[in-house]
Write a protein that binds this DNA or RNA. Structure first.
Length: 223
DNA sequence: AGGGGGATCAACT
DNA sequence: GTTGATCCCCCTA
């Protein structure tokens, strides 16, 4: 924990192991599962931020918990667009949530990135927390982005980051990260929703300190 | 034009 | 387990 795993910020500029739009043009739950361990990069004005994705949730077109369930609205329109774009929305009066669009163009779907382990740019993350109006717990560097709201504070994401490509040439990119051993990848029910709450659409790295919380349902391993 | 609800977080009982 | 902070979104009328 807290080990230096390399200069991902420099690599992020033009490293070949960058997830391409084709990665996201697949079933939402497949993408949610395979995003575990990958590296979310934000090349922001304050500095570059890199974090290892440790927790995701899928949101599907036929899923009552999904913003796109009842069809396109101005807010969720990007969910019906091409895969590999960001979907950032505002919630609870002060927080944002960051998603990546999945499925083929015309089919709604997204993966909510709920938590990352900070890998690079902790100083920049701390600047973002200092600029945040509400008091947040920043004592544990492993838990600076241990939830979807905190993640957006840490990365400096807001609605200006909605509908941006998550790919080469964009300030937001996802790099291939270290492979997560299958026994450490678990599936469970989602958090903080009431609609379709029993759907096992949440994925996280077992016992990882940066995961938001264990959740109500017993998590099981998936192949 | 009005109002209920929300993919959150931290503090409190 | 419950509650306050805080405001945009979307449905209803």
């Amino acid at each position: 924990m807290g080990r230096n795993i390399g200069h991902y910020g420099t690599m992020a500029a033009n490293h070949p192991r960058l997830l391409k739009p084709s990665f996201f043009a697949r079933p939402t739950l497949t993408v949610a599962r395979e995003l575990l361990g990958q590296l979310l990069v934000h090349e922001s004005k304050r500095g570059i931020i890199v974090g290892k994705i440790v927790e995701t949730e899928g949101y599907l077109a036929d899923d009552p918990a999904c913003h796109a369930f009842k069809g396109p609205t101005p807010r969720c329109a990007v969910m019906f667009g091409p895969p590999g774009y960001s979907y950032v929305y505002f919630t609870y009066g002060m927080y944002h949530c960051f998603n990546v669009i999945t499925e083929q163009k015309g089919v709604a779907g997204a993966v909510l990135v709920r938590a990352v382990e900070p890998v690079e740019g902790v100083k920049t993350i701390m600047k973002n927390f200092k600029a945040w109006p509400k008091n947040m717990n920043t004592s544990d560097p492993q838990r600076l982005a241990s939830g979807p709201g905190k993640l957006c504070v840490a990365y400096g994401f807001d609605r200006s980051h909605n509908a941006l490509p998550v790919s080469k040439g964009s300030p937001i990119r996802i790099l291939e990260g270290p492979t997560v051993p299958p026994r450490d990848r678990v599936i469970a029910t989602r958090i903080g929703i009431t609609q379709n709450a029993n759907a096992p659409y949440r994925f996280y790295i077992k016992a990882h300190p940066s995961v938001s919380k264990t959740g109500p349902a017993p998590a099981r391993q998936f192949p």
